[in-house]
Design a binder for these strands. Structure first.
Lengths: 195, 195
DNA sequence: GAAATTCTGAACCAATCGGTTCAAAATTAC
DNA sequence: GTAATTTTGAACCGATTGGTTCAGAATTTC
C-alpha cells in the first residue's frame, strides 16, 4: 500500500554515466547531476550515497559494457573480427556526440591520476582487463592461423591497447568520423590485423 | 629606489605549470597554486590576472617547449632520429615522476573537452602543430631515402600521433618505464621508424 | 634619514561546493 | 476514508571556490 518508486534507478544511473563521461568527475557538479538524472537532492543521497560512490558505479558499468563488446559471439573462428568489431561498434556505428565522449576509462585515468588514486586504479584495472582480452584473441588468432606468429601476443596486445588509447584521445579532439576510421584502418593494417 | 621584485615570474609560472600538469585545471585550487608558486594571493592577481589566464600561459609554454624537441639540430640528415629522440627525451631520459605526468596537452584535451572549449582548442592546436612537424620530418626522410615511400607522409604522421597520444595515456597509468620503452619500440618498429 | 616601489597578509566578497535533515506532499493498497 | 511508503523541496550546514581590496611591512636608492 505504499507509493511505488517513481524514478528508475538503472535509467538514472545511465543518465549520470553519460554526464560523467562527458564532463569528468571533478567538473560535474551535484546540481548538474540531479538535473540530468531528474532526481531530487534528497532522493539522490537516499539512493546513491554520494557523488563519488555513484561515479564508481558508473565506471564499473561502463567497463563491463565495454568488455561485453569483446565477447566472442559463437564459434571460435574469426578472432580478429572481434577486434575489428570493437572499433567499428564504437566509431562507425555510433552517433557523433557519442564518439566525442571518447572512453570513460581513458578520460578517468588521465583526469584522476593525481587527484583520486582509488578511482583512477578502478579505471586502470578495467583497461587492463581489455588488454588481457586482446591478448587472448590474438593468441587464438595465431593458433587458428588467422595471423602469423611473428610477434608474441603480449607485445601485439600492448600495441593494440596503445592504439586504442590513442584513438580515444583523438575522439575527444574535434575530428571527423571519417578521419578516425582512417586512423584506425591505418594502424590496424600496420599491426597486421586489417580486414 | 624601489624595492626590487622578490619572486621570479618565470620560475613561478614554471611551478604553476608543473602543478597544472599533474592535477589538471579544475582540480587545482587557488590555495594549492599559491602554495606551489610561493606567491601571495594579492601578488598572484597583480601579476597573472586569473587562474584561467595563468593556465593558458602554462599551456602555451608547455606546447612551445615540446615543439622545440622536434627542431632539427643541424644538418638535414637523420630525420627519423629526431622522432626517436622525441620519445627518448620524454621517456628514457627523464625522472619517473615526470613521466607519470604524461603530456599536458593530451591531459587538457581530455579534461576540458566539454568544460572549457577555448582552452581545449588551445591544447588541440598545439598538438596539431606537432603532427605537422611529424609530417615534414617523414617527408624529408622519404626524400633522403631514410624510409620507403610506401605510405604517404600524412598517413604516417597521423599514425605516429595516434601512437604518441596512446603513449601519453600509458604514462599516466602506473606502468614501469621499461614497459613504456618497449611499447614505443614495438610501435615504432611496426611503423617502420625503428632505429 | 626620506621617497619610491613591491610584496604580503588578512579581511572580505558572493557564489558554489558536497552533504544532511525533515516535514509535507504524493501515491499506492486496503 | 486510513495506513503505509516514497518522493520532494526547501532550508540548512560548514567548507571552499575564484576573485578583490587595501593598509602596512619590507626593501631599495638617494
Amino acid at each position: 500500500m505504499a507509493r511505488p518508486p517513481s524514478f528508475n534507478r538503472a535509467l538514472a544511473v545511465d543518465d549520470a554515466l553519460k554526464l560523467f563521461w562527458r564532463r569528468g568527475y571533478v567538473a560535474t557538479s551535484l546540481p548538474e547531476l540531479l538535473d540530468a538524472m531528474g532526481v531530487a537532492r534528497s532522493s539522490f543521497y537516499a539512493t546513491f550515497s554520494s557523488k563519488r560512490e555513484l561515479f564508481s558505479e558508473c565506471l564499473e558499468l561502463f567497463g563491463s559494457r565495454t568488455l561485453t563488446i569483446l565477447d566472442k559471439p559463437g564459434g571460435s573462428c574469426e578472432n580478429l573480427s572481434v577486434i575489428r568489431t570493437f572499433f567499428n561498434e564504437t566509431i562507425s556505428e555510433v552517433p557523433e556526440h557519442r564518439i566525442s565522449r571518447g572512453c570513460m576509462m581513458v578520460n578517468t585515468v588521465l583526469e584522476l591520476a593525481d587527484v583520486d588514486l582509488e578511482l583512477q586504479i578502478l579505471a586502470q584495472t578495467k583497461l587492463d582487463k581489455i588488454q588481457e582480452r586482446f591478448q587472448c584473441l590474438i593468441l587464438d588468432a595465431q593458433l587458428a592461423g588467422e595471423i602469423t606468429g611473428a610477434h608474441c601476443p603480449a607485445e601485439l596486445a600492448d600495441a593494440l591497447m596503445t592504439l586504442n588509447l590513442g584513438i580515444r584521445v583523438q575522439c575527444r579532439k574535434q575530428v571527423e568520423r571519417t578521419q578516425l576510421v582512417k586512423s584506425v584502418d591505418t594502424s590496424l593494417r600496420l599491426l597486421g590485423i586489417a580486414a
